Computed example of a mutant assay.
Amino acid sequence: MRDLMNSIAPKRAISPADAVADNTPVVSQIIDVLGYGSLTFLILTGALADADATFTVLVEHGNAANLSDAAAVPDVDLLGTEGLASFTSADDGKVFKIGYVGIKRYVRLTVTPASNAGNAFVSAVALLGHPAMFPTANPPV
């Protein structure tokens, strides 16, 4: 059967919001992976106005619900690389992805601009998959 909907749980990671007009990092919600066997972050770009801006992606994980124990995820626990998920001002209107396969319970994504003096619109969705309980809730909770 060609059913993806009942085996995923999308979560808000970075909400669509006002443009980032400086180099302030954009930090996602903390995603709890309990009950799921996979996590993929989908990073969506809108208009990226500054012609020389770069945006670096970092994935962190830990076992504390507030991620007070946050540590950068080792490359072995990522599907794809943070480099491939990072982008530049030339990447208006694109989607990037990075997967997490580590064993920690909580994960977050940070997008850090550099040389950004213009408006940059960035959002992200955390897509949880391989649920322990099937089907997943609709609407998602």
Rank of each mutant, 00 (worst) to 15 (best):
34 L>C: 05
35 G>Y: 03
36 Y>V: 08
36 Y>D: 07
36 Y>M: 04
37 G>H: 07
37 G>F: 11
38 S>V: 01
38 S>D: 10
39 L>C: 13
43 I>A: 08
45 T>K: 04
46 G>N: 10
47 A>H: 10
49 A>L: 14
50 D>S: 15
50 D>C: 09
50 D>E: 14
53 A>K: 05
56 T>H: 05
56 T>W: 00
56 T>G: 03
57 V>C: 06
62 G>K: 00
62 G>H: 07
64 A>R: 02
65 A>R: 05
65 A>L: 09
66 N>L: 13
68 S>Y: 04
68 S>C: 02
70 A>D: 08
71 A>T: 12
73 V>W: 04
74 P>C: 02
75 D>G: 09
75 D>M: 00
76 V>M: 05
77 D>I: 02
77 D>T: 00
77 D>W: 07
78 L>R: 03
83 G>K: 09
85 A>W: 03
86 S>H: 08
87 F>N: 01
87 F>Q: 00
87 F>T: 00
89 S>M: 06
90 A>Q: 10
92 D>N: 14
92 D>W: 07
93 G>H: 10
93 G>R: 08
93 G>V: 00
96 F>Y: 10
97 K>P: 01
99 G>H: 06
102 G>Q: 07
103 I>F: 11
104 K>N: 15
105 R>G: 11
106 Y>S: 11
108 R>Q: 15
110 T>F: 03
111 V>K: 05
111 V>E: 02
113 P>N: 13
117 A>Y: 09
117 A>D: 15
118 G>C: 13
119 N>R: 10
121 F>C: 04
122 V>T: 15
123 S>M: 08
124 A>W: 00
124 A>G: 12
125 V>H: 01
125 V>F: 03
126 A>W: 02
126 A>M: 13
127 L>Q: 08
137 A>H: 09
138 N>T: 14
138 N>G: 08
